[in-house]
Nucleic acid binder design. Structure first.
Ligand SMILES: [Mn+2]
Ligand SMILES: [Mn+2]
Ligand SMILES: [Zn+2]
Ligand SMILES: [Zn+2]
Lengths: 143, 143
DNA sequence: AATATAAATGCAATTAGGTTGCAAATGTAG
DNA sequence: CTACATTTGCAACCTAATTGCATTTATATT
């Protein structure tokens, strides 16, 4: 999927700064989600830690990125589908967290409807599968 | 569900100490999961921070507690079902994270089977629903 | 193009979550 | 009761994340 940072920023009423563009570029680079620590490692020389936090938060709030927590409580970020907007994310797909390479994939698999017990009203449902991803699986078997 | 800390400790080859009993009591007290920070607030005067971490980790490894990460990356703990054991948790139920009171419930709802894309092998699946819980729902409407 | 102004950035300081090493205290098996 | 292994508490440390504030930057207007 091609990404145009400048348009994305315009569309979401965010000023166009080189730090914001860099963050988007970096995240769009790979199709899998990227963690905050990885981003910091890659961009730490160009962008201040604090600024990175603020940009990621802004992107999440605006519906540009969605945040996926892994088993260690580390935040990972992936580009939202175009239907996401402020305070309404449409991140209704299953995530896959590889226990080997730790990458998080946004799968093209919908989250099944869950029947809630009486009294509980769910607005969003989050599903993450843990296991071995495509790449790691090939590497292990093919050796 | 009644909990007997002393038996649980025996059954899992853990020494019976007053700190361990207190932690189990505290977690068993409420049917919803409790977060590490809450536990620390409640027990901080009786039990050292570090000891609490160590107890929680031991309990998780032994299959006494399971850890549920919330949207903020905070660890929450709940008593495992009796079928859980060392390095094999059976936590195949849906969790409900109330966006109002922030409590996490272990629901009596199974996680539906998910069909994985080719190449991806899932060993465990985790589902959390976010929304308004039973109690908060009553409080809001009844007021 | 120059200017005004609101927003974003970087830096320093702080808070909070979590870990490590070690001496003292405690539980349990003999 | 004793011996020994384990657990605990404390101090130090490390890393993640937040806050306040001065400086810089983007953009709307003249
Ligand atoms: Mn996703
Ligand atoms: Mn549970
Ligand atoms: Zn992998
Ligand atoms: Zn609630």
């Amino acid at each position: 999927m091609k990404i145009d940072p400048i348009h994305i920023l315009k569309d979401h009423d965010l000023k166009h700064t080189k730090q914001r563009v860099r963050v988007l570029e970096e995240i769009a680079m790979d199709s899998v989600a990227i963690s905050q620590p990885e981003l910091e490692k890659k961009l730490g020389k160009e962008i201040d830690r604090v600024t990175l936090y603020r940009i990621l938060n802004a992107y999440e709030e605006k519906g540009i990125l969605h945040k996926i927590m892994d088993m260690n409580g580390t935040a990972n970020y992936a580009i939202c589908s175009p239907s996401c907007s402020v305070d309404h994310h449409h991140d209704e797909h299953v995530h896959f967290n590889c226990t080997n390479c730790l990458k998080i994939y946004c799968l093209d698999v919908m989250i099944p409807k869950i029947k809630m017990p009486a009294g509980f009203t769910a607005s969003t449902v989050n599903t993450t599968a843990y296991g071995i991803c495509e790449k790691c699986s090939v590497l292990q078997s093919g050796n």
